[in-house]
Design a binder for these strands. Structure first.
Lengths: 184, 184
DNA sequence: GTCTATACACAGATAGAC
DNA sequence: GTCTATCTGTGTATAGAC
């Protein structure tokens, strides 16, 4: 296979940046193409619709979170508290870099009342996150307590991201992550 | 003044429903006009731009929350716990009726990276909410503790709304409201 | 694989008849 | 105050040259 001018991985990575920042509906195919240094025509050669690009972006981002963040919960070399702290650091980085925010929360709020297209990928993301948190909290709590603590942490973090974006102040997220650690 | 076919109040009320459900960018002027039983031309007679309609909708909704919900925090005839319970009931109703969700959270996530137009009204909404919660928690906690408890409650509730919408399950919100009451 | 050109629908907004 | 008609821009998507 001859070398490609631009790889599919690159297209998705660049597209994620645009979707993350502008949202699904507000992003045009021209935006995505330009971000990749292509024209619309060339971009459509790789993906046949905006929906298809978005799906690939969501799946790719979810996999990246699993790989870089949620997987920490299953590493045997760390204590539960170490896992919580390490995850908090990477989550903070992921939700504050560039313009900040949670790609999945943005997308579900934008699309949930209009089309069900992306709901399963987003459910999957939150289910992976919850599973990772449950894994950690389970070392110290009953199964049902661990689940409740996990859901509370996730809700608190997501809500704090909203306040963080509203006030342009990352300490809202920082505080939520600390509350999550303290609840262990 | 002769009777109007349709009052400005009605236009805004109907528009809020549409914006709440479809979001700002996804809602067209034709959507708003149709929801009000008007044509685009007639609708433009009342409001000169979509942005102006949105601003009026946000302000009107924020005032409604202050009037019907946040004001409970300042009623002297109730104990702090009664206030928390009453507020939780109305908040639950407001965020679950129709399609559910928080109009202000939706809007800030949709627009914050694109335009700053609505940020002040939305800040005002959250600041009113926070003030009401601080008023209640202050009866039992120091000023700084009351503020932290308030922000935690609000973040938890907003995050739980996301999970509620994702899973079509209002118990996420119910649980967050209970956690807020228990934290008193 | 990338480009230009284009088809077609719909967006926000305005003009002018009734 | 409401309507129809229209202007202008932009959106998704496709066709076909290079």
């Amino acid at each position: 296979m001859p070398k490609e001018k631009i790889s599919k991985q690159d297209l998705i990575a660049k597209s994620i940046d645009v979707f993350w920042k502008k949202g699904y509906y507000r992003t045009s195919m021209a935006d995505l193409a330009t971000a990749c240094g292509l024209t619309k025509g060339a971009f459509y050669h790789h993906y046949k619709s905006k929906e298809e690009v978005m799906m690939n972006c969501l799946v790719s981002t979810s996999d990246m979170f699993e790989d870089k963040i949620f997987s920490i919960a299953y590493k045997e070399e760390y204590t539960a508290l170490e896992k919580l702290n390490k995850m908090a650091d990477v989550i903070y980085y992921a939700f504050t870099k560039e313009n900040g925010g949670c790609y999945f929360a943005n997308t579900i709020l934008e699309t949930v009342h209009i089309e069900a297209t992306f709901i399963d990928v987003i459910k999957d993301f939150f289910s992976r996150w919850e599973a990772a948190m449950v894994e950690i909290f389970s070392s110290n709590h009953s199964e049902s307590e661990a689940k409740e603590l996990s859901l509370k942490s996730i809700a608190d973090i997501e809500g704090s991201i909203i306040l963080m974006l509203l006030h342009s102040d990352t300490s809202y997220l920082k505080n939520a992550l600390n509350r999550s650690i303290e609840s262990y």
